[in-house]
Amino acid sequence: MPMTQAHFHDLKDAGVLVTGGGSGIGASLVEAFAMQGAKVAFIDIAEEPSLALVRRLSATAPHPVHFFKTDLSDIPAIGRTVEAAASATGGLKVLVNNAAWDDRHDIDTVTEAYWDANQAVNLKQMFFTIQAALPHLRKAKD
Rank of each mutant, 00 (worst) to 15 (best):
I45H: 10
T70L: 11
D74W: 02
P49G: 02
A59I: 11
Q36T: 09
F67E: 02
L95S: 05
S50H: 04
P76H: 02
A59M: 11
A59K: 07
V65F: 01
Q36P: 05
A46L: 15
R56M: 13
G37H: 03
L72Y: 01
P76S: 05
V40T: 04
L53A: 11
Q36D: 07
R80W: 08
R56V: 13
K39S: 08
A41R: 00
E83D: 15
H66F: 12
L95C: 09
V40W: 01
F42R: 03
I78E: 04
A88L: 09
V65A: 02
A77S: 10
A88F: 05
K39L: 08
E48N: 10
M35Y: 05
T89W: 00
E48R: 11
I78C: 08
A77I: 04
T60Q: 14
V54L: 07
S58L: 07
D44P: 07
Q36I: 10
T89D: 01
I75N: 05
D71H: 02
T70S: 11
F67R: 05
L51S: 13
P64G: 13
P76M: 05
F42Y: 05
H63Q: 08
A59L: 13
L72S: 03
S87C: 13
Q36C: 12
S73M: 13
A84R: 06
D74L: 08
A88I: 09
V65N: 00
K93C: 14
L92K: 00
G79K: 07
F67W: 06
P49E: 00
D71Q: 04
L72E: 01
V82Q: 08
P64F: 11
R55M: 13
T60A: 15
D44K: 05
D74Y: 03
F68G: 02
A77K: 02
P49C: 07
P76G: 06
R80I: 06
H66N: 11
V40H: 01
A52F: 09
V65G: 01
S87R: 15
R55E: 15
T81P: 02
A41W: 00
V94A: 11
S58V: 10
A46G: 07
E47P: 10
K69M: 14
H66P: 06
S73I: 11
K93P: 10
T81S: 04
I78D: 07
L72A: 05
A77G: 10
M35Q: 11
